[in-house]
Structures are given as structure tokens and as C-alpha cells.
Simulated assay, not measured.
Amino acid sequence: MLEEIPRTVAAPDSPQITAAEAEAMVRAVLRLFERWQVSDAEAREILGGLAPRTYARWKAGAPGRIDRDLATRLSLLMGIHKGLRFLFSDPERGYAWVKKPNLAFGGRTPVEIMAQGDIFSLARVRSYLDAERGGW
């Protein structure tokens, strides 16, 4: 006999990113930066001008408290990664894409755009990838 599986609630009880989720995103983003071959200086700018000491703690596995701005940046980076995985069947091509000049960004690389430091630059790259994969 068939049994109905309970549906996932469309609106979660907690719309906030939990500390555990933020820490998991930190670990994922650090691995992503390695795959993208992003320098520590570029990574800190992408993360909104994170202090070198704080970034070193992140890399040592102690991210500490993640504020709303950082959580949003981490979420945008996860969305960029997801978009690249949808667009490229070969993950290595997706990882390489962020370092290639792109006419949509005035001939600059996506990493250069993201490393401008403002959250809108991250959103710009995310929106571009969403549009490319038909996410509008």
C-alpha cells in the first residue's frame, strides 16, 4: 500500500541561516576558492574585506560568528557555484570560467568583478549565471 510522504514546508520556520549552515558554507567556499585558484587577498575582498587574521582563522577551521552580510555573501557564492555546475558538464571548465575574461563584464574576469568588494558585484555575477542558464 502506498503511503504519502509528508511534504516539506515551503516557508521554513527559521528564515535565517543557522550558525551550522554558515559554518558549512564557510568550509565549502574555502574549497571553492582553492578550485578557483583565488589568492587569499582576492578571497578576503570577495568576502567584503575580511581581515587577514580572520581569514586565517577560517582556514584553520574556526570561522567564529558569521554576520548577516557574510552569510549573504556565502550564499551568493554558493549560488554562483551552483550556476556554474548547471552550465558546465565538466566541473573543471566551470572552475576555470571565473578566471577568464568575459565580454559581459567589460572584458574583466568574474573574479575581478567579485573582488571589487561590494555585495552587488557578487550579485551581478550570480544574476549573469542565472540568466545564462535560463533562471529569469
Rank of each mutant, 00 (worst) to 15 (best):
D69W: 04
A22Y: 06
V26E: 02
R57H: 14
W58T: 00
R133V: 14
R133H: 12
I66F: 08
P91A: 03
R31D: 15
G64E: 03
I5Y: 11
R126W: 11
E45D: 13
L87V: 10
A62T: 12
R31V: 09
V29E: 02
S89Q: 15
E92V: 13
R124W: 03
A104M: 08
P12K: 07
L30P: 05
F105I: 10
K100G: 03
W36M: 14
R65L: 10
P91I: 08
F105C: 07
A96T: 10
I66Q: 14
Q16D: 15
E45V: 01
R126G: 04
R27W: 10
G117D: 03
K59W: 01
E23F: 01
A56P: 00
V125M: 03
Q37V: 05
R73F: 05
R85D: 05
D90I: 06
N102T: 02
F88M: 03
D67E: 08
L30Q: 02
A131W: 10
I5T: 12
R73K: 12
G61N: 02
V111E: 05
M25Q: 13
L2N: 11
D90F: 04
R7W: 10
D90L: 12
G64R: 01
A56I: 05
A104W: 07
A104S: 13
T8M: 14
R68V: 15
I113K: 01
P12I: 10
A28M: 10
G94Q: 10
A56H: 09
G61L: 05
I80N: 00
A96K: 10
W136T: 14
W97D: 02
S75C: 05
A24Q: 08
K100T: 13
L77K: 03
R68Y: 12
I17C: 06
L77C: 06
N102G: 01
G64V: 08
S14A: 15
E4L: 15
M1N: 04
P6E: 11
K82R: 15
D130R: 15
R93Q: 15
G106H: 13
G106F: 02
L74K: 03
N102L: 06
V98L: 15
A131N: 07
G61S: 06
R57C: 03
T109K: 14
S14P: 00
F88D: 01
A19D: 13
Y55Q: 13
R68S: 15
S75L: 15
P110G: 07
I80P: 00
F105V: 08
G135C: 01
P63A: 07
L77D: 02
G48N: 07
P52F: 09
I119Y: 06
I46M: 13
L87W: 10
Y55I: 11
A60S: 14
A24P: 00
A104D: 13
R133C: 06
A43Y: 09
E21F: 05
D40H: 11
S39C: 00
P15S: 07
I17Q: 05
R85V: 09
G83V: 07
R108T: 06
G117R: 05
G48H: 05
R126L: 11
A20M: 00
A22H: 02
K59D: 03
